[in-house]
């Protein structure tokens, strides 16, 4: 008898506790990262898959170290895009890290590439530069750092799949003109400095035409050796 009463009392106490917890959180936003990064979604998509705007990049599945570096660069104004600079200005490092990890951990399917408007010759030049580079002009192959599958490497080298030609070409242009910079040694600035405008168009077109793969995850750190020093991927 006593035991049964005690059990009922205990159950009631537990129920009451549940009720209390529910009352506390009922009127609060979900305590999740996806609710916290809703400010990112009009431009980058709900899971970081990108949107119809070709200048806004996919974030999902990129290495978290790369995403974190970009968030830091936008917050300090080193990477200039006022809407991003404004949003991040007063957010602390650990929160930016959590945001980077959130989008790195999302894996919505890659989009099928849009049909390209460039000629076969241009496409062939793009493929040549991406896969083999041009030693005579000191241009390394993109794949030598971004990986044979172009999926990037943990923690700091981004994959190049699922991006639109307009975005890639705008970024390569920004590296060439020095308006986008990264930690020294700033390898991308050196590489992009050796590209002509025609190279940029070709590389962007060929990269944007890569078919979606099933496993776009970046390879683990140290899977291959980089051809030169990179401030974003310290050894």
């Amino acid at each position: 008898m006593f035991a049964r009463d005690a059990a009922i009392a205990a159950a009631l106490v537990i129920l009451a506790a549940f009720d209390g917890a529910a009352a506390q959180t009922a009127n609060q936003p979900p305590d999740t990262m996806s609710a916290r990064v809703e400010a990112c979604t009009p431009c980058h998509g709900n899971k970081g898959e990108g949107t119809s705007d070709v200048y806004f990049p996919r974030l999902a599945g990129k290495p978290s170290g790369y995403l974190y570096n970009q968030l830091l660069a936008f917050r300090s104004g080193r990477r200039k895009y006022p809407p991003m600079n404004y949003l991040l200005e007063f957010l602390p490092d650990p929160y930016l890290e959590a945001m980077a990890e959130y989008f790195a951990g999302e894996h919505p399917p890659l989009p099928q590439p849009a049909p390209s408007e460039v000629s076969k010759d241009v496409m062939a030049q793009g493929e040549l530069l991406v896969t083999g580079g041009d030693a005579g002009r000191n241009i390394p192959a993109c794949v030598s750092c971004h990986g044979p599958g172009l999926t990037g490497m943990q923690p700091g080298i981004p994959g190049l799949l699922g991006l639109r030609a307009a975005y890639i070409s705008a970024q390569l242009g920004a590296w060439r003109y020095g308006t986008r910079t990264a930690k020294s040694p700033d390898c991308m600035q050196v590489v992009a400095g050796h590209l002509t405008e025609a190279d940029v168009t070709a590389v962007a077109a060929w990269l944007a035409a890569r078919p979606a793969t099933d496993n776009p995850a970046p390879v683990p750190k140290g899977t291959y050796a980089l051809p030169f020093g990179c401030g974003s991927q310290p050894n």
Binding site: P29, A35, E38, A39, P42, P83, L87, L91, Y95
Partner: peptide
Amino acid sequence: GGYPPGTEGNPMPYGMPP
């Protein structure tokens, strides 16, 4: 849009989309 500041009392603020 905008984010409130990240503070000790609110280290992971919710943001308003632009």
